[in-house]
Amino acid sequence: MLKVVHYINQFFANIGGEEMAHVPAEVREGIVGPGLAFQQAFGEEAEIVATIICGDSYFNENLEEAKQTIINMVKKYSPDLFIAGPAFNAGRYGVACGTIAMAVRDELNIPVLSGMYRENPGADMFKNSIYVVSTKNSAAGMRDAVKKMAPLALKLAKGEKVGASAEEGYMPNGKRVNFFEKERGSRRAVNMLIKKLNGKEFETEFPMPDFDRVDPNPAVKDITKAKIALVTSGGIVPKGNPDHIESSSASKYGKYDIDGIMDLTEADFATAHGGYDPVYANLDPDRVLPVDVLREFEKEGKIGSIHRYFYTTVGNGTAVKNSKAFAEEFAKELLADGVDAVILTST
């Protein structure tokens, strides 16, 4: 029987949410959490011999150490396959899954597999290096994810030939693979055109290479005269979150006046972000949006001035499309207000 080691985070191991994201790596014999669904799908063909659990913050902040510890844990079981996740749209979990899966493959030379939502930052980072199955954006999509991941996992473990991404369910990885569609190309083109004409979603068979890079703007000539605006995706808002920015999948952004405010304090500001442990940011919001030090710089003449308003939203699980639309909108205001440069902080 094929042996599988499974990697999950603190949340899926039922240890806790963001407040427990600092827990270091541990290994448990057998199945934990979502491993059960995988085990059922594998049937008699494969067995999850161990599950490794690691807090998302711990992993990302202690990268080298965490990687080495986990590789050693995996090595002990000499498995035929390593599965990380699925991470759905949890950004740091996705990055952790991709990082550790790639490290395991490179160090131990065993096939690896992960699963994520397409907008998970880990997807873009790792889909070209390892097989990453495309999942839904939340854990509600677990069944669907396992249905796609388990057959591919078995194929990888057995060393069988992997087909095209469209057949196997992994995210396109920059390697084009031929396969036979059900309909001929002209029929597919007609179907695609009908969808496009009717404003329905369609899927191109060859996404154009990503040109969406913006050339860097020229440097600020004299920073001591520059008007600088603060922007954050860390969700810093006036206490009480007056505009009710969602803690995840934000549909809006906030614009708040900091005229005369020298320091962001626990009394007046907090974070609305639901994707990281909020304790530190709530105790001192300057840790995310550094108003205090920037005011010093302003006084000392290191910068011209701080723009009167800061812009904020929650980057947690927010659709790329949304955050793009937010920034398109407020960038116009920044321009109109004569802002010379922006400091954007992210958590």
Partner: peptide
């Protein structure tokens, strides 16, 4: 064929 005569595709 680029008129779409066949079922062959790639991803």
């Amino acid at each position: 064929n680029e008129m779409g005569f066949n079922k062959l595709s790639a991803r």
